[in-house]
Design a protein around this nucleic acid. Structure first.
Length: 491
DNA sequence: GTTTTGTTATC
DNA sequence: ATAACAAAA
């Protein structure tokens, strides 16, 4: 048994937990009374899938800048390192005489496994590792059905979770960060070039988002003040600021689900309607469910949760996929969503469902292609949530929408963008079209289109697929799949 | 977290 | 002719 140096430093390894408040690893490190070394390691491991998309990189830059500022204000310093943590962390431990290493678990099985080997290496060389929960509220191993199996239905899962969910109070922001005398020589954030320069396609991101802990807190307060009371309806309206827009902040750990939980409880105590709060917390619940599923089914990102879908006849439609990715499908709600994604790095949740359904059902493209694209373009790309959500829409997932629940993007537009303002904002080609036709421009009389300055096929595309035909083909493919899979014994 | 279709009720 | 509803997909 190796001995632990009483004089050594405590290393805090920041990952997707870029916050000072309610940070269990940081808190525990400070409690030791040891001098601190604070590092962030940028890992671009393709195999582990930890290389962020370009939009997420834009966010990472801002989040790290914010964290570094906050750390400096508390008398500390954040060292930015790049490389393989499995080598860097033990190396740092040796070079800097580090006694203990602290981090918060990721909640992603692949990363957690990797981290356990790092912990073992550290242990073997006399450095004590400490890993904490924090990414989620729920310990996935402690929540099982009566028969000891993982929940597969969200309602049952969340009900069971809520029965004894009593998150302890959030941890305070440390006032001072006493640093070790010698710190790792880190990179300058600017040198990592995480943000696009030329052309700066992220121009539209800057005035919409404030990455970092302060921005996260502000976003939450604004949501609770302005939108929570009407959340049950407002959340479905992409033309209005009805959702929390916390996803990128949660994804980078600038705010913890526990902080969100307690903030909502405080509003409940102050008179916020129970139904609205419950509805919002259920969205936190869906995030929990995604991590829970990925924990128990670690091929959730690559394989159909429902193996019957292994027999589904996905089309390899490169043109359709490209049109979808470009926001040029000719279906206004779909194109508006994708263009919002391009311009802001984010898409409204209702529209995510519409876009995903269109890709997976009308175009019958494989959900994994859609998932990959979202991870490349979303600032909130969360690997657990993305996998669970795409499988949900595709019908292959746990507690998924039945496959035959096929969103009609025209009807969705009429219901949730009833004044056409969302489409007008993101598809300006259609802005002058009367409301009656804005969600289905191909049906507008020629004279109306002409008056609105719209040339289908020139200014704005014809639909890449006929909605009724696409729907019927999807249902037929689903029927085929069921026939085939009932003939095929499960393996 | 849906849509479509068929049936019945109501103008 | 159309709204309202249930059932099927």
């Amino acid at each position: 048994m190796a001995t632990i140096s009483a004089t050594g430093a405590a290393l805090v390894w920041f990952r997707r937990d870029l916050r000072l408040a309610d940070n269990p690893a940081l808190h525990a490190a400070i409690e030791t009374g040891r001098p601190l070394i604070l590092v962030f390691i940028d890992q671009r491991d393709r195999a582990l899938g930890t290389a962020p998309g370009e939009a997420a990189d834009w966010w990472l830059h801002g989040s790290l800048a914010s964290l570094a500022r906050d750390i400096t204000a508390a008398g500390g310093r954040l060292s930015l390192l790049r490389g393989d943590p499995a080598e860097l962390i033990p190396g740092l431990a040796r070079e800097h005489g580090i006694a203990e290493v602290f981090w918060n678990r990721s909640g992603e099985p692949g990363i957690d496994v990797r981290d356990r080997t790092i912990a073992a290496t550290l242990q073997g060389s006399g450095t004590k590792p400490h890993a904490f929960a924090g990414t989620t509220l729920i310990n996935p191993d402690a929540l099982l059905t009566g028969s000891g199996t993982p929940y597969k239905v969200f309602g049952a899962f969340w009900r069971a979770a809520l029965r004894d969910l009593a998150p302890r109070p959030s941890l305070p922001v440390p006032q001072r960060l006493p640093m070790a005398a010698t710190l790792p020589a880190g990179a300058a954030l600017e040198d990592w070039r995480l943000r696009p320069a030329n052309p700066d396609w992220a121009q539209g991101f800057h005035d919409r988002w404030q990455p970092g802990e302060a921005g996260a807190a502000q976003r939450l307060e604004r949501f609770l003040d302005d939108a929570l009371d009407d959340y049950a309806d407002g959340r479905d309206r992409p033309d209005k600021p009805g959702t929390s827009m916390l996803s990128p902040h949660l994804g980078f750990g600038e705010i913890s689900p526990r902080q969100v939980w307690h903030s909502v409880q405080a509003r409940l105590a102050a008179g916020t309607g129970f139904q609205a709060a419950e509805r919002f917390l259920a969205e936190i619940g869906w995030r929990e469910f995604a991590y829970y599923l990925l924990h128990h089914f670690d091929d959730l990102r690559t394989a159909n949760f429902n193996r019957n879908f292994d027999h589904f006849s996905w089309r390899s439609d490169a043109d359709g996929l490209a049109a979808w990715q470009a926001g040029q499908t000719g279906i206004p709600m779909v194109d508006a969503g994708v263009r919002q994604l391009w311009a802001t790095g984010w898409m409204h949740n209702r529209v995510r469902m519409v876009c995903a359904s269109f890709l997976v059902k009308h175009l019958r493209c494989d959900w994994r292609d859609g998932m990959a694209w979202f991870e490349h373009t979303l600032i909130d790309a969360d690997r657990a949530v993305n996998a669970a959500s795409w499988q949900w829409v595709a019908g292959s997932g746990a507690d998924a929408a039945p496959y035959f629940r096929i969103f009609n993007p025209v009807r969705q537009g009429e219901r949730f963008d009833p004044e056409g303002r969302y489409v007008q904002q993101w598809v300006p080609e259609l802005a002058r079209l009367p409301l009656r036709w804005i969600h289905q421009p191909w049906k507008a009389p020629a004279i109306t289109r002409q008056t609105a300055g719209l040339k289908l096929g020139a200014g704005y595309p014809f639909p890449v697929c006929d909605l009724a035909a696409g729907r019927d083909a999807a249902l037929a493919a689903y029927k085929d799949m069921k026939t085939v899979s009932s003939d095929t014994p499960p393996d």
